[in-house]
Amino acid sequence: MFALLGTNGAGKTSTVEVVEGLSRPAEGSVRVLGHDPFKERSLVRPRMGVMLQEGGFPPDLTVTEAARMWAGTLTSPRPVDEALSLVDLAHRASVRVKQLSGGERRRLDLALALLGKPEVLFLDEPTTGLDPESRRNTWELIRSLLREGVTVLLTTHYLEEAQALADRLAIMHRGRIVAQGTVSEVVDAYPSRISFVPPTGVSLPVVADVESSGRVTVRTNELQSTLHELLAWAARNNVELSGLDARSASLEEAFLAIAEEAA
């Protein structure tokens, strides 16, 4: 899985629409499964599934009717019931689309993207509007698709989603890719953090930022040794570090730092 992240308005959806073959690239070339997705649409489309950020269904069709219509346009669809149960919508099969919740509509969208048994799957913010449980279920579904060998291009606002699922990712800002690589490659470029509230009047053995609340933050590229040094010092001097929190850089921190730098 490749995840495309970015600030709002960075151009993620526009980029994905070019890769999907919805619009023609202004310059350069795009290849999906070895073909030009715009000019050779008929070769590429049967092998790909797309979940748009905003896709529509006629509101007066039922879930099954909408899925059946979609299946009727495909070369080799899987059974409609199977696609609906993959996304836990089987129990809503005879409900009109307009009566579905936002999260259910999202899942119907995913079911349609999976109907054609795609080799390449485009997911544009697939879990936006889902409750935590549905989001976990969707993640499990995506993981099982990845195990089956499906290639996924994901865009998302949820950084933990990219961190949990993606093999590689890129971060976009104002139309440009500002960082890319595996999750750890992107994250390792940013320091880990240790934060705590020291008693007043002690002088710390490490360089730290002090916030107005009295909380201090230590940034380090060697979390383990810095933390060891700090804890040893505290034990020797009998200092209590209240609210101690130590963590490696997360994708979220990398992302925020990139957005800040670029701004």
Binding site: L22, R45, V50, L52, G55, G56, F57, W70, T73, G116
Partner: peptide, 17 residues
């Protein structure tokens, strides 16, 4: 109606010409 409901957009990412 189909355009504003985003149905046309959805159909366009499928296999139909």
């Amino acid at each position: 109606a189909r355009r504003e409901e985003l149905v046309l957009k959805r159909l366009r990412v499928g296999e139909l010409t």
